[in-house]
Design a protein around this nucleic acid. Structure first.
Length: 886
RNA sequence: GGGCAGUUAGCUCAGCUGGAAGAGCAUUUCCCUUACAAGGAAGGGGUCGGGGGUUCAAGUCCCUCACUGCCCACCA
């Protein structure tokens, strides 16, 4: 098998992702004999194109799925997309705008046709990109939040909640986006600090001289004020409570009320109350029975105000009101002030709180159940630190505004009887139903459906159930087997928007949590720690990275820096490093495969014959154990680092290099024996890293196994924790030899000895503890330190002009007469003496500390003593050596 | 205002239950040694944010301050 010298990701990737799809490698069916491990994808919006956040999120899910599959679980990862409500509708609206049209020009029906057409044409882009990313999803199960099955789930959920009385309609203060033309839920509002002013306005008393000064960030809303509120215990106003004031510009009588929520230390301690356009004021109004005047309509224009201001936008009204207040002497002062302003999470338009008729869901019961599930550890958070904010959020939740005044989405399945003129009949109750009702109890047969659609997150909240057919007839074998799912993998930005609500709905409808583990990863940031955004121009496109460095490199780089719950910074360098790693894997494999030429058959079992074999097996076993437990703890970043470190610094740098001695052996048995170990470990390594790097491992696995049917994703982990015996002794012995080799190399490097020069070395044995281990493996030292001759002795005479290395009970002389720079060697040795002196000082300080000797464990004291002895010996020997130089 | 993270080499980050500071990138020197120059070997570089404390011993535990980031809140 010919392998290219450089790993060519493109050919390999195309071949394999097609293979996985065509062969349905990742499809799963209920199987009572196997344990399921299930994940449902956080469905990306149909507007989506793969960005780094998706790449990270889906890579992590894929790692979990692929690893569990290697462990023998019946794994299932369900793909799908979300219709994305407002976000998607506005994409199509923008397209219409380019043609100079609005959705109203088309009308609801035609507009929705357009939406569906768009969704059919481009809505699956992101799923294709996930295929390129290598995601092991069961594509036959691809779901869409607005397909028939999911729509039925939504209807069923709505009707159940409606019939339980949990869904109700009411006119309340809601967050209104004037741009999107719809109400939003509380969490769909994002707050951002904004520089503004604090206007201080005088409200004069009606029956006496004087006035009260109120401070406000929204002077225009004074037109809708119905009171001024002060703190009940504010002495400045204790005599004024109940007094009547004249509202400037409007000339309306309003009174002063007392309310606990007013902070007397803020501003003047007096607050203007606009019950119809401020949440706090609305609360005050409820407590004090205040009148409610709506002065801003859903288009953001002023209404119910003096003629002069009617029809103005909020901004215009603000200017006019401030100007008039100033002119009429009501403006005390204007201060600079910075405060947070609510904005629409989709279009960033400033949110207008206003009164509106909406559908609400009472969530108190399901919230409590969700909190209990978290407290009983039925839902486990990784990292655990997310549990607290999650629980806190659920505990303070207000009813969820679930209706939206847009067209794209699940139309609310509520029907109203209408009279002959098409007017809703006031005396008939609205009905929630799957289909338009045939007949009402009142006898009428004409119905209209509610115009609103549901919050897109309503259907998302049903996702872990609806993907398995919940609400779609009796076909729920999948639901029984796969629900609750095993893990949910997501970023923290949708913890409340989505995660919490799935738990609420799961508890409500299934009486069980939707998933047992919530793995929360961080956000991908750019090199300087900024969030990636199109406006900042710092977006790194994962498709570009896949193209340039390979998908495995992208995945590895992301995984390596994905510590649970922490944001990560990525840059081209990190992908480059990962690309180099994939090339390293490729070439190490290539080396082994090249050496298989002429070898007919290898055994599956391995027979360690010498130190390096035992050592590499011990090291690998340790690595495999660690990696397994890392994966199981969702610690994928540690798994990635551990595998990288083992493979590069242990397997390649040491073991492969040492294997070359036997690789050139004329005895085929010797060569076979080392190849068996090399392959055994390589294959196990490939399995362990295949969840992170599925493409390159699939390719090498197939080549190594020499047959087309060898599919790594379908293999079972060959390393189990007890299979291989760890010989700790081999690690100790090996480290002695590695240390000797490194020291000789250092001398060669510092003395500029050509790598080609086969120099001699004399090992004077000072301490026989390691003598045999080193003698037995002198071929290692010769090979890796490039020595021509190596001799041992007890009283070896120091050759003239030789360099000195002290290591593990040996005094090593490298006769370098003619090659050595005497001054350089003297300088090098002096430096070592200085280091040894410092060591003596440190260790002596410890040993002369009575408390240390008295309280530290014996083993620590012995260690320090040994270090002191070594330092002393070092100085003695180096001094000896210095005498022989020059 | 409350909460949660983070602060370790020039940059990005590891360092588990406390016992001599690590990796990658960058940098310096040498090397195209027949797996890999997308590579190999060796080196330089850190008083682990400041200050206290516990301990024989603290990057690691406790307190406190500072800064950065994020989340939550009825910041008029």
């Amino acid at each position: 098998m010919e392998m290219e010298k450089v790993y060519n990701s493109k050919n390999v990737e195309e071949k394999w992702y097609k293979y996985w799809i065509e062969n349905k490698t990742f499809s799963a069916k209920p199987d009572k004999n196997k344990k399921p491990f299930t994940i449902v994808i956080p469905p990306p919006n149909v507007t989506g194109s793969l960005h780094m956040g998706h790449a990270l999120n889906n890579t992590l899910q894929d790692i979990i799925i692929r690893f569990k599959k290697l462990q023998g679980f019946n794994t299932l990862w369900v793909p799908g997309t979300d219709h994305g409500g407002i976000a998607t509708q506005s994409v199509v609206e923008r397209m219409l705008k380019k043609e100079g049209k609005t959705k109203y020009d088309l009308g609801r029906e035609k507009f929705l046709e357009k939406m569906w057409q768009w969704r059919t044409e481009t809505g699956d882009t992101i799923l294709d990109q996930l295929k390129k990313l290598g995601c092991g999803l069961d594509w036959d199960r691809t779901a869409f939040t607005m397909d028939e099955v999911r729509s039925n789930a939504v209807k069923k959920a709505f009707i159940e909640l409606f019939d339980k009385g949990l869904i109700y309609r009411g006119k309340r203060l809601v967050n209104w986006c004037t741009h999107c033309g719809t109400a939003l839920s509380d969490i769909e509002v994002e707050y951002e600090d904004e520089k503004s002013n604090l206007w201080h306005i005088k409200y004069p008393f009606k029956d006496s001289e004087g006035y009260v000064i109120v401070a406000t960030t929204r002077p225009e809303t004074m037109l809708g004020d119905t009171a001024v509120a002060v703190a009940p215990d504010d002495e400045r106003y204790s005599g004024s409570i109940g007094k009547i004031m004249i509202l400037p510009l409007v000339n309306k009588e309003i009174k002063i009320v007392a309310d606990y929520i007013v902070d007397k230390s803020f501003g003047t301690g007096a607050v203007k109350v606009t019950p119809a356009h401020d949440a706090t004021d609305n609360e005050i109004a409820k407590r004090n029975n205040l009148e409610l005047i709506e002065i801003i309509d859903i288009s953001g224009k002023m209404i119910n105000v003096p003629e002069k201001y009617a029809g103005l936008s909020v901004i215009e009204a603000r200017k006019a009101v401030v100007a008039d207040l100033e002119e009429q002497g009501f403006l005390e002062k204007i201060e600079d002030y910075s405060h947070s302003v609510g904005r629409c999470y989709r279009c960033s338009t400033t949110i207008e709180p206003l009164m509106s008729e909406q559908w609400f869901l009472n969530v108190s019961g399901m919230s409590k159940n969700a909190v209990d599930a978290a407290n009983e550890e039925k839902t486990v958070f990784v990292p655990q630190s997310w549990k607290k904010p999650y629980v806190l959020w659920l505990e303070n939740l207000r009813d969820w505004c679930i209706s939206r005044q847009i067209w794209w989405g699940h139309r609310i399945p509520v029907y109203y009887c209408v009279d002959a003129n098409g007017q809703r009949k006031a005396d008939c109750k609205p009905k929630a139903a799957f289909e338009t009702p045939k007949e009402c109890v009142c006898g009428c047969k004409d119905f209209v459906q509610d115009n609103d659609v549901l919050d897109t997150w309503f259907s998302s909240a049903l996702w872990p159930m609806s993907v398995f057919g919940w609400g779609d007839g009796d076909n729920n074998e999948d639901l029984k087997y796969f629900y609750p799912t095993s893990a949910l993998v997501t970023g923290h930005e949708i913890l409340y928007l989505w995660v919490a609500r799935m738990v609420q709905f799961g508890m409500e409808f299934m009486k069980d949590i939707p998933y047992s583990h919530v793995f929360i990863h961080g956000i991908v940031r750019d090199k300087s720690g900024k969030k990636m955004s199109k406006s900042l121009g710092n977006v790194i496109d994962p498709l570009g990275i896949m193209d340039k460095f390979g998908t495995d490199a992208l995945r590895f780089a992301l995984t390596q820096s994905a510590a649970p719950g922490r944001d990560m910074q990525v840059s081209d360098e990190s992908f480059l490093a990962a690309r180099n790693f994939s090339n390293k894997i490729w070439n190490a494999s290539r080396f082994i495969i090249m050496n298989l030429e002429g070898i007919d058959k290898l055994e599956d079992n391995i027979n360690p014959a010498e130190l390096a074999d035992e050592w590499v097996i011990a090291e690998f076993t340790n690595t495999a154990k660690k990696v397994t437990s890392y994966y199981e703890a969702y610690d994928m970043d540690s798994a990635a680092r551990e595998l990288y470190d083992f493979f590069w610094t242990k397997y390649c740098d040491w073991y492969i290099e040492l294997s070359k001695i036997r690789m050139t052996s004329t005895d085929l048995k010797v060569k076979k024996q080392v190849l068996e170990i090399l392959i055994y470990i390589l294959k196990s390594f490939l399995q362990l890293i295949s969840p992170i790097m599925p493409f390159i491992t699939a390719e090498i696995w197939q080549i190594l196994n020499g047959e087309k049917s060898a599919i790594i994703a379908e293999s079972q982990l060959q390393i189990t924790n007890d299979e291989l015996q760890i010989n700790d002794e081999s690690i100790k012995k090996m480290s002695v030899i590695q240390d000797i080799i490194t020291k000789i190399r250092t001398i060669r490097s510092e003395m500029n000895i050509s790598p080609a020069a086969q120099i001699e070395a004399f090992f004077n044995v000072l301490d026989s503890a390691n003598e045999n281990a080193v003698k037995d493996n002198e071929s290692y030292i010769k090979q890796l330190a490039k020595l021509g001759l190596l001799s041992f002795g007890k009283d070896i005479q120091r050759p003239k002009n030789s360099a000195l290395a002290l290591a593990n009970g040996f005094e090593i002389f490298l006769p370098l007469d003619g090659l050595i720079d005497i001054e350089k060697e003297k300088a090098r040795l002096s430096k070592e003496i200085a280091a040894a002196m410092a060591e003596i000082e440190r260790t002596n300080a410890k040993l002369s500390n009575e408390n240390f000797v008295k309280r530290a464990p014996e083993i620590e004291i012995e260690k320090i003593k040994a270090r002191l002895n070594e330092a002393n010996l070092k100085i003695e020997k180096i001094n000896d050596s210095l005498k022989f130089l020059g």
